[in-house]
Design a protein around this nucleic acid. Structure first.
Lengths: 185, 185
DNA sequence: AGGTAGGGAGAACGTTCTTTCTACTTTGAG
DNA sequence: CTCAAAGTAGAAAGAACGTTCTCCCTACCT
C-alpha cells in the first residue's frame, strides 16, 4: 500500500496503544506521522476508522503469532505451551501496556459500537482456538479449560503492565501447566 | 456531607463506570446530577479530582465487601472462597462493565499520573490481602498462589462484561478451588 | 500528451471540552 | 441579626476536538 498510509497506521497504532484511544487526537497522529490532514481523510473515513484499522492489524498479528507457535510444536500439549509462552513473552516487551483489545473496550463501552464488536470477534476467535487446542489434549470436554486459559491470559495481560512482568509470566505458565496436568492425568 | 456533593459523586461514578472516563464530560455530569458548574468546582478541584474521588469510593466499597466476606467465614479456606464468591457475584450484576480500576488505567497509561497511582495502590492492597489469606491455608509460601488468584480475578472481571458472566463466574470459582486443593493436599 | 491518483499545505468550520467568572439566593450557626 | 458557607444561574474564555474545504504539485499510466 501507500507509504503515507503505512506511516499513518503505524504511528496511530503506536500512540493508540501507548496512550489510549481518546487521549490521542488526530492532530498528534498527523504531526508524528508527518502526513497531512487531507491525506489521512483520503485513506480513512475518520478517526474511528483508524482505530478499527489499528485493531484489525493487532488481530492479524496475534493470529499470526498463535499460528506460528502452534505450527512449531511437536505435539498437542506443546502447542498449548507455545501459545502460553508467546503470551508470557509478550508481556515482557518494553512498552507493554496491556491487551490492546481489553483497553479498547474500556474506552468503547457500548456493545453495539463497531470497536466493541471488533473486540468481541477477536476474543471469540481466541477462545475457540484455545478450546480446540485443549480438546486435543486428553479426552475431557475442553470448554471449561478453554475459558480457564483465556481467563488466565486476560489476567496476565492486565497485570503485566501494572506489576513486575517477570513473576506474572511465570505464574501464568505455571497455571497453564496445571490445566494441562489435569487433562493428561 | 453535602447533598449536592453526593449527587455529583454518585452521578459521576455511574457515568464514569458505565461509559468511560474520557467519554463523559463535565456538562453531562452536571446536567444529570442537577448541580451547577460553580457548585462542582466548589467541591472538586476539577474533573480529575472527581475521577480520583470515584476511584476512592470504589476502593472503599471493595475493601468493605472483602472484609465482610472474610469476617463471615468460619475458617481460612472459606474466607478465600467468600472473596471468590463475592467476585463471581459481582460480575453477574446488571450493568457490570468490568473492573473500575483496570478500565481506569486503560485511559490513564502514564504510571506517574495520580489516577494510575491510585489504581496501583488499590491493586497492591488486594494482592497483599489475598496473599495473606492464602498463607493461612496450608504451609506453602503463598506469593505465587496470591498472584494466581489475582490473575484469575482480573481475567474474570475483564471477561465478565464481554461474554456470558454465568460460566465465567463458575470457571473462576472452580479455578480458585483448584488453588485451595493444591494448598491443602 | 493528458488524465488521474496520491500527497502537501493550510485555512476554516462548528462543536465540545474544562475552567473561571460574576451576580443573586438560601440556609444555618453564633 | 448577621455573617459565611453552599447553592443556583448563566455567560464566557480559551483550548482542543474531528471534519471539510480549496489549491497546488508530482508521478505514473495509457
Amino acid at each position: 500500500m501507500s507509504d503515507a498510509r503505512n506511516r499513518l497506521l503505524g504511528t496511530a497504532s503506536r500512540l493508540f496503544y501507548g496512550e489510549g484511544l481518546h487521549s490521542v487526537g488526530v492532530d498528534r497522529i498527523l504531526a508524528e506521522a508527518k502526513v497531512t490532514r487531507a491525506t489521512m481523510y483520503r485513506h480513512f473515513a475518520g478517526k474511528e476508522d483508524l482505530v478499527l484499522a489499528y485493531l484489525a492489524e493487532a488481530d492479524r498479528a496475534t493470529r499470526q503469532n498463535v499460528d506460528a507457535g502452534v505450527a512449531a510444536a511437536t505435539n498437542d500439549a506443546d502447542a498449548v505451551r507455545a501459545v502460553a509462552r508467546g503470551i508470557a513473552g509478550h508481556i515482557q516487551i518494553e512498552g507493554f501496556r496491556g491487551c490492546a483489545f481489553l483497553n479498547a473496550v474500556a474506552e468503547y463501552a457500548d456493545p453495539a459500537h463497531p470497536v466493541h464488536r471488533a473486540v468481541q470477534a477477536h476474543r471469540q476467535w481466541f477462545l475457540d482456538t484455545v478450546t480446540d487446542l485443549l480438546a486435543r489434549v486428553g479426552n475431557a470436554p475442553a470448554e471449561l479449560d478453554g475459558r480457564h486459559f483465556v481467563m488466565l491470559r486476560d489476567g496476565a495481560m492486565a497485570a503485566g503492565c501494572l506489576a513486575d512482568p517477570g513473576p506474572i509470566g511465570d505464574t501464568f505458565c505455571e497455571a497453564v501447566e496445571g490445566i494441562l496436568r489435569a487433562r493428561t492425568s
